[in-house]
C-alpha cells in the first residue's frame, strides 16, 4: 500500500506536511548539500526584517537538559539582501516558499509583506508574533486585540497565504487563534520557543550574551502539543504544529492533537537529515497502522475516549 502524505494549508498544496521551523534552516542553502530540498513539504525561511539585523552578541546558544536555549536575535540580510541573495537560490526548488516576517512595528511587518508580495517565488508569509528575542513581537502576540490588529493589517497587504506564528506564553491560545482566524489568517503556527535564561553560577552571570533567549527541543514538546490541542478546539483553519519534533512518531502526535502539518526545528541541528527522516517515518507509521492518508487522523485524539492503552513510546 502506498500512503499519501499530501495536505492542504490555505491555498498551498503540500506534498507532505513536513517543513523547517524558521531559523533552524537558514534559507535552505546550508542544508542543500545534505538533503534534497524538493523532498520537503514547504520551505520556511529564516526571519526577514525590513533592514538587515546583525543579531545578538554571543554567546547565542547553550544546551540544556533535553533542550536548547538560543538568542540569535533574528540576524538576517533584510528585504533587499533576501531578494538579491536568497530568492535566486530558492527558485531552483519546487516546494512552496513561506517567508518568516519580523519587525519592530506593524508598519515594519507590512513593509516586508508588501515588498515580497510582488516576488513570485514567495508563496506565503509566516508572521512571527512570538519571538522572545524581539520585545515588540511579544507585545503584538500576547493580546487578542494585538493579534487581530496585525492580522487585519497584513491581510490587507497581501492575497498570498498568511500564517500567524503564535507565542506559547499566554493563558488563552484559543482566543488568540480565533482573533487571527477572524481577520483572515490562512493558518496558525504553534509554538515558538518559550522565553528562558540560564546562569553560570561560577562566574555569577547569565550565560547568553543577550541574557534571555528561547527554549526549544524535546523538553517543550508537551507544551506545544497542549497548545495545538487547544487551538484545534477553537479554530477551523489549519494548525501547523512545532516544538520538539525529532521523529515520525513525534510528528504523528501533533497530527493527532490537531495539526495539519508540522515543523522540525532543533532536530535539524542534531541531525541534518531530520526532515526527510520524519517524512519517511510518518509514511511508515501510516502504513503500519493501516492508514492511507493523513486527513482522518488530524485531531483524531480529540475523538477517542479516555487515556492511552500503552505508553511504549514515552
Amino acid at each position: 500500500m502506498t500512503v499519501d502524505l499530501s495536505v492542504t494549508i490555505g491555498n498551498l498544496k503540500l506534498a507532505n506536511p513536513v517543513m523547517p521551523a524558521s531559523g533552524t534552516f537558514g534559507y535552505g542553502q546550508e542544508y542543500a548539500g545534505l538533503i534534497d530540498l524538493n523532498d520537503l513539504g514547504a520551505i520556511v525561511s529564516k526571519a526577514v526584517s525590513p533592514a538587515p539585523r546583525p543579531g545578538n552578541k554571543p554567546p547565542r546558544m547553550v544546551e540544556l537538559k533535553g533542550a536548547l536555549l538560543n538568542s540569535i536575535g533574528l540576524q538576517n540580510p533584510g528585504i533587499e539582501g533576501f531578494i538579491e541573495k536568497k530568492i535566486p537560490f530558492l527558485r531552483q526548488f519546487k516546494p512552496p516558499v513561506v517567508v518568516n516576517v519580523v519587525g519592530n512595528s506593524i508598519e515594519e511587518y507590512r513593509q516586508v509583506v508588501e515588498a515580497l508580495d510582488a516576488i513570485d517565488r514567495v508563496d506565503g508569509f509566516e508572521i512571527n508574533l512570538s519571538c522572545p528575542n524581539v520585545q515588540k513581537g511579544l507585545e503584538f502576540g500576547t493580546t487578542v486585540d494585538g493579534v487581530a490588529r496585525i492580522t487585519r493589517e497584513l491581510r490587507s497587504a497581501t492575497k498570498k497565504d498568511l500564517w500567524m506564528k503564535l507565542t506559547p506564553t499566554v493563558p488563552n491560545p484559543g482566543d488568540l487563534g480565533k482573533a487571527a482566524e477572524g481577520e483572515g489568517a490562512d493558518a496558525l503556527v504553534a509554538i515558538n520557543t518559550i522565553g528562558g535564561m540560564t546562569i553560570d553560577a561560577e562566574s555569577r552571570r547569565p550565560v547568553l550574551g543577550a541574557r534571555f533567549g528561547g527554549v526549544s527541543g524535546p523538553a517543550i514538546k508537551a507544551v506545544a502539543l497542549k497548545y495545538v490541542w487547544l487551538l484545534y478546539e477553537s479554530v477551523k483553519i489549519p494548525i501547523i504544529g512545532v516544538g520538539g519534533i525529532f521523529n515520525g512518531v513525534d510528528a504523528m502526535e501533533f497530527i493527532l492533537a490537531g495539526a495539519t502539518a508540522i515543523q522540525v526545528g532543533t532536530a535539524n541541528f542534531v541531525n541534518p537529515t531530520a526532515m526527510p527522516d520524519v517524512i519517511s517515518q510518518m509514511a511508515d507509521w501510516l502504513e503500519e497502522h493501516g492508514e492511507s492518508t493523513l486527513q482522518p487522523l488530524i485531531g483524531e485524539a480529540h475523538r477517542t475516549q479516555g487515556a492511552a492503552l500503552s505508553i511504549k513510546n514515552h
Binding site: 534552516f25 546583525p54 543579531g55 554571543p58 547565542r60 541541528f269 541534518p272
Partner: peptide, 22 residues
C-alpha cells in the same frame, strides 16, 4: 566554540569580526 548545526544555518557559533559583523 560550542556549535549548533555545524552547517552555518543556526548562527549560534559566531565571533565578532573587526568589520562589525559576525
Amino acid at each position: 566554540v560550542q556549535m549548533g548545526c555545524g552547517l552555518g544555518a543556526c548562527l549560534a557559533c559566531v565571533y565578532e569580526s573587526t568589520e562589525g559583523d559576525f
